[in-house]
Amino acid sequence: MSAPRLLEIAGLKVHFKTDDGWVRAVDGVDIGVDAGETLCVVGESGCGKTVTAKTILKLIDMPPGRIVAGSITWQGRDLVPMTGAQMRAIRTKQIGFIFQEPMTSLNPVYTVGEQIAEAVRMHEGLSRRAAMDRAAEMLSLVHIPNAARRVHDYPHQFSGGMRQRVMIAMALSCNPKLIIADEPTTALDVTIQAQILDLMNEMKEKLGTAILLITHAMGVVAETAQRVVVMYAGKVVEEAPVGPLFATPRHPYTQGLIRSIPRLDLAATEHKRLEAIPGTVPSLLDPPPGCRFAARCRFAQAECRSAEPPLRELATGHKVACHFAESIAA
C-alpha cells in the first residue's frame, strides 16, 4: 500500500478467558480501512466480527478479554497501548460507533437531544445551548422530521428505524473520520434496513466519513461496500474489492456464503434448493489445526487439516487464505 491507511489492524489477537480456557475469538486479523471508503466485514455469528470492531475502540471488557497480540494503528498512532483517557478522547470524536440494537442503545431517562448534546459537550466543550442546537442540526441531517421539536422527545417516542437514525446522528455528531457500524440494520425490518443503509451511504458522501460495516448479510455488502473482508472463526479468509468478490469468490467459505443468497434471476422451474453451508463454526476454545474451515469444506484435502493456509494475494487487492484457491473455481 502506498499511502498510509486511516486505520490499519495488523495481526490482532483478542482472547477471552472463560472457565473452560482461553477462547480465541479473534486470532490474527489484518484489516485496513482507507479514508472515505466503505469496508464490509462479513461472516456468520461467532466468527469474531463484532469483537474485532469493538476492540478498535477498546469497548470489550478487559478482563475477561485480552488483546494478546497485534496493533491497531489509527492515523499513525497505535491504539493498543493507549490509556483509558486517551481512548475516550478518540471515541466519537475521531471514530464513531453505531450499535446493533437501536431499541436499547439510547438511555431511556434522557431526551435524544440531551444524549447527542452530551457527546458534543464532552468532546468539543460547547455550551448547553450550542450543543442542543448541534443536536437538532444532526437530527435534521439524518432526516428526522421536525428535528427542532424532536430533540426534546424521549427514546420511547421513536420507532426502531428512527432510533437508529438518532444513533447515526450521535455517532456523526463530532464529525469523526471513521464510523464503525456493528450490524446496524440487523434489528430492523427490511424496508427500514434499506433506508438506514441509504442514509449511511449518503452521510459518507456528504461528510467523507469512512465506514467499517460489520454485517452477516451479503445483500448489505453488495449494496454498500467498496471492499469486503470475509472472516471465519476469528481469521480473515478472503479480502477483495466488492466486484471481484461476488464475481470470482476464491475461498470456499465465501463461495458458500454467496450461494446461500436467494436468487430471483434463476428460473423457478429449475427448482434448485437454496444451498447452505453444512456444519457450524468450530469451537474457538481449541481450534483445529490447519484450515479452520476444513471440516465444512467440500474441497478439503489432507493438507488442509494439517497446515494453516496463509493469506495470499492472488490478484491486486484480492487476498485469499486457501491452499487450493487457484484450482477451485466459483
Binding site: L57, L59, G84, A85, R88, A89, I90, R91, T92, K93, G96, F97, F99, E101, T104, S105, L106, N107, P108, E118, A119, M122, H123, M167, M170, A171
Partner: peptide, 14 residues
C-alpha cells in the same frame, strides 16, 4: 445494558 456501552463509545468516563 446497551445504552451504557453506547455511552462508553461516546467517550464517557467511568
Amino acid at each position: 445494558k446497551e445504552f451504557v456501552e453506547a455511552a462508553r463509545a461516546l467517550g464517557a468516563s467511568r
